[in-house]
Design a binder for these strands. Structure first.
Length: 210
DNA sequence: TGGACGATCCCCT
DNA sequence: GGGGATCGTCCAT
């Protein structure tokens, strides 16, 4: 019984890490799992292998120019989902981090598909199903695969049917590669992109290793 | 009220 | 490797 209570305590405790600075949280999210249960009961799961940190003090962040209707969720409680729409056709998902009132988050750039690959392929209208690494190796791709759109903006990731399961133990430091972020013009030298070393499910892995 | 642009992806060359 | 698709958001008139 004491054991059970300590497990519950640990879970609540580990969730608190999300209130840390976004670059700290970014590292901690690597190896954690995103789980979606669809209305029909199908389970989709992916292990987070690539992330980017954003903060209100950082010119590349949506929250840099202050709280607006669009960025409101970023300034809310940690552990909620900030979903934004971009390029007229894509959604991207962030885990909100930091204290309430502070606009920060971690963009999930890629996951390694674990469960529900067929459904992910359908959601992605994926033609070549042998290339499973192309299902979720980009921020908009994983949103499409998981069926995440703007209706999920503000969702608490501790709640079904879309949950973030924090890994029990952080990854070893030498398993994490740190680089500048992708596709931004402001603050492009800030090294706040993190990914798991030599993981084939990281975005652009194939083209960069050719 | 309008115009520029974007934390992307995919197809074509 | 380059460019088009496509529309919400924000800022300047």
């Amino acid at each position: 019984m004491a054991y059970c209570r300590s497990m519950v305590h640990d879970t609540a405790d580990s969730w608190k890490v999300l209130t840390s600075a976004s670059d700290i949280v970014a590292r901690r999210l690597l190896g954690s799992t995103l789980v979606r249960v669809l209305p029909g009961g199908v389970r989709l799961a992916g292990r987070i292998v690539e992330v980017e940190a954003y903060d209100q003090t950082d010119a590349a962040s949506h929250s840099y120019r202050g709280r607006t209707p669009r960025t409101d969720v970023m300034f809310g409680p940690a552990g909620h989902l900030y979903v934004y729409f971009t390029y007229g056709m894509h959604y991207c998902a962030n885990v909100v981090t930091g204290a309430e009132g502070h606009g920060a988050g971690v963009l999930i750039r890629a996951v390694e598909p674990l469960e529900g690959l067929d459904t992910m392929a359908e959601n992605r209208q994926h033609r070549n199903r042998s290339k499973t690494h192309e299902l979720t190796n980009g921020p908009a791709k994983l949103c499409q695969a998981f069926g995440i759109d703007k209706t999920w903006n503000g969702h608490d990731l501790r709640q079904e049917p879309l949950r973030l399961e924090l890994s029990q133990t952080p990854l070893e430091e030498d398993m994490i590669v740190q680089t500048p972020r992708i596709g931004i013009k402001q603050a492009k030298d800030v090294p706040w992109r993190f990914y798991i070393r030599e993981n084939p499910y990281v975005s652009g892995y194939v083209s960069r290793t050719r």
